[in-house]
Design a binder for these strands. Structure first.
Lengths: 325, 325
DNA sequence: CTAGGTGCAAATAATTTGCAGAGGC
DNA sequence: GCCTCTGCAAATTATTTGCACCTAG
């Protein structure tokens, strides 16, 4: 955790100011998990250094917000709270007006929409805050909280893995069906190879998931943190269904390419948004995997179309991509 | 505008308190368009009645928020601002950190996602606030603002009409193609009838759009207020493409049903969310239209499948619906 | 008559600022 | 030595409260 500091200073010399006190406050802030009020941070910092004044904490907080290290959020109490934005490019909150507790989540889908809207208005966005106010389950039903949120770090990794696993599973399903129903031997071989790769990778991801669960016995029960609809049924689900209904080898190839491309983009894009963390790593790893499958498929599609007939069109892929957009 | 007051009192006796001062403050508040600070409201109210105290305004504001008439938003200045929530179930904001101005928008897509997430966490949401911080176009390019936002009332109506028109257009396109390529005379007649209906309605909507533009010469140039991706290319666009590539009559019927159902749901759902306004009316009107088309298609599908063969399955529609979900 | 609304002024609470001194480069 | 940070205390700002009074039902 401590080496974050040097990273941060390298990354954000914005304001060009540094000092012992400031670094101490920053470090204390980064150590915390939840949402701190200014006063909380004063208390925590004073525990490490008696002589830190409230003003300094406020000034540091201001600097952190400007530098993009922290985000100021309002939960409807009279004061503001602060949360890291390092490691958490944007956070969304569900805020219960009864118990005043808040829980966080991320939604890839919402982020995408926000980006699109900002672009449409030619607005260059750098922070977004979404607060959903209402009543939480516990306050509504009166039941005690079954499980709390847990560390976002673990939750993020868990959800990244779940999405990855769902994707690999549907990929596996798709390729094994495709390899069975393929008429051409060559196509069959390709699909089989891809099925095997998915199987291997799936096994790896699943054992990783097990290991993660070991770190926190309740991890599996905790509420979803990262929402991503695209992955709901696995990115290949629709494709697998098409295969089940019967399609030609080359159509299957096109469908496969579309799926790999979509999931490659998602994993790449999302993975890049995060600072080092297990979740980031998982996303980027899967992105690589998808990328290499995609490359294989593209090569294969070229060969096939060249063999089949003399017309050198590569239109079908383009057509399908447009229809899906 | 003034008759809103009686409506409000009927709708929200929450707190069961009324008085001259309070009503005056409320009325002044509702007359304003933008985002008022407490101080703004004090000033405005004092213009009508010298003897109104700051405390009363604060207390009234508090009551309005509780009663769901107003929403408290933080734009990152030191104080809060307030906006109507009557007529505006939720508002999202783009906030420029340079000029501190904010502009609003609505996004059907984001609202849907928010609802899904709240449901997934069994959280009952009643307000949501989304703020996107960044730099606006003017502050970035230095150019003077070409057009300002304008009244949300008009913008909402404008965008509702645009979405409706895009939908009708793509519907028209779809049905006229389908009627040309239909083999069966009966199917052809149905598609032609629907095409005619779309044409009529489209003409109506377009003249309404013209009338709306007359109210504000710059209306057309103002930025998008209501975002809805589903309507981006018209809800029937994908269907029309399928017809172009050639499908059977019964497949066309299924596609048409899917499109009508989707757009019916969107217009209904969204229309219902608003208090009386031109936009609401447009949405509900189009919803009715789609609903009647859908009914017609359903009747037709029944007849056709009965005629074609004895198997009384209605599976195809279900299958397609699932694949798209 | 009585609960609740209202004005005034004082209180609170969060955050900012002025200023003199301290510390890093 | 210069520039920025820092602590302290005072100031500022938004918002709330106590209390006596008033008003509608």
């Amino acid at each position: 955790m401590v080496d974050l500091l040097t990273d941060l200073d390298d990354l954000r010399p914005a304001g060009g100011k540094r000092s012992g006190k400031r670094e101490l406050i920053l470090e204390v802030f980064l150590r915390q998990e939840g949402h701190l009020s200014a006063e909380d941070l004063v208390d925590l910092s004073r525990r490490e250094d008696q002589r830190i004044s409230r003003a300094t904490v406020y000034r540091t907080l201001q600097w952190m917000v400007e530098a993009g290290i922290a985000r100021k959020v309002d939960f409807g109490e009279g004061r503001f709270r602060f949360e890291h934005s390092y490691r958490h490019p944007r956070h969304f909150h569900l805020i219960c007006k009864v118990c005043n507790r808040s829980s966080e989540f991320l939604s890839s889908d919402i982020e995408v929409l926000i980006e699109e809207i900002a672009a449409a208005r030619s607005f260059s966005a750098n922070q977004s805050v979404l607060q959903i106010y209402g009543t939480c389950e516990q306050c509504r039903t009166g039941r005690p909280p079954t499980v709390d949120g847990g560390t976002t770090e673990l939750l993020f990794a868990r959800d990244a893995l779940r999405i990855a696993i769902a994707t690999e599973r549907s990929g596996l399903e798709f390729y094994s069906r495709a390899s069975k129903s393929a008429r051409d031997t060559r196509a069959c071989a390709v699909f089989e190879r891809l099925a095997n790769e998915e199987r291997d990778h799936l096994a790896k991801l699943e054992s990783r998931y097990e290991k993660l669960l070991a770190k926190d016995p309740q991890l599996e029960a905790r509420p979803t943190f990262l929402f991503f609809k695209g992955a709901a049924n696995g990115l290949f689900a629709a494709g697998a269904e098409q295969v089940a209904r019967g399609i030609t080898d080359s159509q299957a190839l096109v469908v496969a390419m579309k799926c790999e491309r979509t999931s490659y983009r998602f994993f790449k894009r999302y993975g890049e948004k995060f600072e080092d963390s297990e979740g980031k790593q998982i996303f980027l790893e899967v992105a690589d995997e998808e990328r290499s499958h995609l490359d294989l498929l593209i090569r294969e599609a070229r060969v096939t179309s060249r063999r089949r007939n003399a017309r050198p069109r590569r239109q079908p892929a383009g057509r399908v991509r447009r229809a899906q957009a």
